[in-house]
Design a protein around this nucleic acid. Sequence first.
DNA 1: GTGATATCGTTGGACATCCAACGATCTTTT
DNA 2: AAAAGATCGTTGGATGTCCAACGATATCAC
Lengths: 176, 176
Amino acid sequence: MTRTAAARAEQETAAAPALPEAARDPAEPVAYGPLAEWVGFHLRMAQTASFSAFAREADGIAVGPGRFALLTLIGHNPGISQTALSRANGRDKSTLTPALDDLVRRGLVRRERVARDRRSYALRLTPEGEAALQELTARAARHEANLDRIIGPKERARFVKILKRIAGELGDAAGG
Amino acid sequence: MTRTAAARAEQETAAAPALPEAARDPAEPVAYGPLAEWVGFHLRMAQTASFSAFAREADGIAVGPGRFALLTLIGHNPGISQTALSRANGRDKSTLTPALDDLVRRGLVRRERVARDRRSYALRLTPEGEAALQELTARAARHEANLDRIIGPKERARFVKILKRIAGELGDAAGG
DNA sequence: GTGATATCGTTGGACATCCAACGATCTTTT
DNA sequence: AAAAGATCGTTGGATGTCCAACGATATCAC
């Protein structure tokens, strides 16, 4: 069980030797070595590509993928706190402070003080925020349809389930 | 084709209504709304989780997942230029300057001037770099074995193939 | 050859992100 | 009720990332 990935990668490496040292062309394919089959690496590559493709799609509305996730989560959880939001979003709470500052400044989100706990805010979308969310959701749907096409409709559910499992099991303390 | 993702997400949304506004417990599950089934979102979550799990695994060696990918690519492509490396790594070339500065400072990588083109460097691992790469590779193999277990050996190949397709097709100009 | 264009690595500015530490507030202990 | 501890959002510092612009060098057009 411990060798599956490593052993497979070794073979791939042998099958893709490095180029001769001097004739290295920038356009030439690169030897990925063990990286060629490693999930972690390709997860990063795919995430980066998806992220910037979304950014391209959602351009002109001045709200990137990150902000969009925030708007969606607030929209579907009115009154959520920043800490809960940061957990749902998989980002540190301190990351949210400037992001929410920005969304508030742009009139998309309100921070309400709650009597029940005066340390925390209750976050809500303003009407403008709702409108922006709807607009963004339409664009995201296009992006998702694109991903659907790439993944293949039949694979899709399985693919997402695996992603969730990775996030879930690797989330906090990686149990061996 | 345009509706597959959106339509499905709509349904999911209806099945996971937001909590009553006042009784929001931080430990309470969050309503993800359309995000619940969106590939882009879970790609990001999984990537983040995998990244930090690796960082945990590779701790004590002071080389994070990013540096590790660099070492691997240089090790398997001796003489590669910074620009080619940045492309293979999926990062902007300007990102590499400080990262390589660091690896050079730590004696793991050399930048050699090439007569053929005096603008560019030829990157190579030092013996220390080779040693570090081997150590890191072993740790990465453990991380990958862990991912293997989560993904399931049978799904794994298909999963990686999909990740590569996403990175490839969304890579540059997202053709519709 | 000489001038226009392209490419290499670097710099600067702008963000996003993490972690550790903080003051304010809530909860638990005693 | 007072003290001790936990949690909320913010701050500060560090790093990783992108983009645009730059000087140095290479290549292309003529």
